[in-house]
Amino acid sequence: MIELRSDTFTLPTARMREAMLGAQLGDDVYGEDPTVRALEERAADLLGKAAACLLPSGTMANLAAIMTHCPRGSKILVGAESDIYVYEAHGASVVGGIGYEPLPNQADGRILLTDLAAGFPPDPEDPQFALPGLICLENTQNRCGGVVLPSEYLAEVRAFADGHGLPVHMDGARIFNAAVAAGTPVSEITRYADSVQFCLSKGLSAPIGSIVAGSAEFIRGVRRVRKMLGGGMRQAGIIAAAGLVALEETDRLAEDHANARLLAEGLAGVAGIELDPAVVQTNIVMFRVTDPRFSWETFVRAASRHGLRVGELGHGRIRAVTHSGVSKADIDRAVAIVHQVLSEGP
Rank of each mutant, 00 (worst) to 15 (best):
S74M: 13
G311N: 13
A302N: 07
T140P: 15
A130L: 14
L166A: 03
I76S: 05
G237E: 06
V196T: 06
I66E: 00
K202C: 06
G269T: 04
G58I: 04
P207E: 07
A118G: 12
V225Y: 01
F176S: 04
T35Y: 07
D171I: 01
R110W: 02
R288A: 15
E152D: 15
D276Q: 11
T290S: 14
P185S: 11
D45S: 15
F160Q: 10
G325A: 10
S151V: 11
R174W: 01
M20L: 10
A264K: 08
D108A: 08
I273K: 06
G237W: 09
V186C: 07
R288M: 13
V196Y: 00
S82T: 11
R234Y: 12
G214M: 05
G325Y: 09
I238K: 12
G269A: 15
E125G: 09
V147M: 14
R301G: 01
G209M: 08
L55P: 03
G109R: 00
D28M: 04
Q281R: 13
D7S: 14
L204H: 08
A258N: 08
D33A: 02
R174V: 00
A242P: 05
G345C: 11
H69M: 04
G172C: 02
R42G: 00
F218Y: 13
L25Y: 10
M67C: 10
A336V: 03
L63Y: 09
R234N: 13
